[in-house]
Design a protein around this nucleic acid. Structure first.
Lengths: 218, 218
DNA sequence: GTCTATATAATGATAGAC
DNA sequence: GTCTATCATTATATAGAC
């Protein structure tokens, strides 16, 4: 499997201090948002606050380093998982690994804050889904799409956004730390059946809406 | 139409100072997020920072007052619009009114921050959509749903979350203030056709997925 | 009600000892 | 590399004059 990124705090690990600070920052940012102070991150890493800035220059520099690390991680997971494809989404694959929860939390915060990582993650989702659609259409399990790229964008937007909003609501209702595995299961329970229903049978009884839109385009 | 809530900053208006501060806070929070300082809000309202806390006790108190005001506004718009129903979504109706942009911005920030207003807004969306589904099924334009409430939740989650994510991405790509009207138009351009396609024809070629899920439930 | 001035706390960043 | 100590800034909130 993936080389486990050491994010455990208690165990003595062989990471460089810089890496330990970065990992602690990912956990702390994910946990409390980007408003959290440098001191809290330093405490989580077991170092002084001064050392954080010594290594990363500034809080912004630290955040960029975290973004970059997570970006790389995604790339790594995706490569691994193209080699051994599963019907699961990238997010699902990630969430099944206990130690990845902090990264999901971090990504969630990135979506909230809306930085450049948001765009990266989204574009990854779009191209993933494009791949699934092509595969599905070739295999005959999916109906050929009028505009495959537009459909992929639509699905990335709505599936990604829907999941994200679900997490927001879940966090608002349960306080304390999020159990992402539990949240994901609950999400699937709530969503899969209506989604499958619509994706199988559609929702409209006729094609008037679609025809109107196509007319307008012509 | 709706009684225009005065949010204009330049014009002399007859609002109480408390109301002017609250309106300025909604604009400023929406513009810069909840991390913004009380001083900035006070400046926007043309009063001193001390007076803000005099009226609202604390920054949190101010935010609660803003939340409550927006909640009431939504209720008001919805009432108005049940009396004269249109096929538009609540959000679309809102966004057509120039002065409502600040409220949309504020709601967007609330979604980002994930406060209690998020839950309120979401539950409103769910019950709205339930209504639309019932109406559509009765009118024969929508296929009867297996589980109408679940479908409504699904659609609220994914349409709401999708739109929200779109705005996040839009904001990340265009800097400066968001033009919500423009963003909404672009969103519609991007989304309506693939959505109509899926909602008309579905996506799967057979009902295997759905059958499996239904089996598992039985 | 409204302001100015201030108390208090926390922030990001830096300097200098070791 | 790492720490402690500190600076400068900013934040919220309050006290007291008018």
């Amino acid at each position: 499997m993936f080389k486990r990124a050491a994010v455990s705090e208690g165990s003595t690990d062989d990471l460089s201090t810089r890496a330990r600070i970065r990992d602690a920052a990912i956990v702390t940012f994910g946990d409390q948002g980007f408003g959290v102070g440098v001191r809290a991150i330093a405490a989580a890493a077991g170092v002084s606050a001064g050392l954080v800035n010594h290594h990363f220059g500034s809080k912004d520099g630290l955040r960029e380093a975290c973004d970059e690390y997570v970006r790389d991680l995604i790339r790594q997971v995706k490569t691994e998982y193209i080699r051994d494809p599963t019907p699961k989404s990238l997010l699902e694959s990630l969430s099944e690994i206990e130690d990845f929860a902090p990264y999901i939390a971090y990504m969630m915060r990135s979506f909230q804050a809306g930085g450049s990582l948001t765009v990266t993650l989204f574009e990854h989702m779009v191209s993933d889904i494009e791949g699934y659609l092509v595969t599905g259409v070739e295999a005959g399990t999916l109906r050929p799409q009028r505009d495959l790229k537009a459909t992929a964008r639509y699905m990335a937007l709505h599936n990604g956004g829907g999941f994200f909003l679900f997490l927001q609501l879940y966090a608002a209702r349960h306080d304390g730390k999020l159990d992402y595995r539990k949240a994901l299961r609950e999400y699937a329970d709530q969503v899969m059946l209506p989604a499958a229903d619509i994706f199988t049978n559609g929702l409209f009884t006729d094609s008037m809406m679609l025809d109107t839109l196509l007319d307008r385009k012509r």
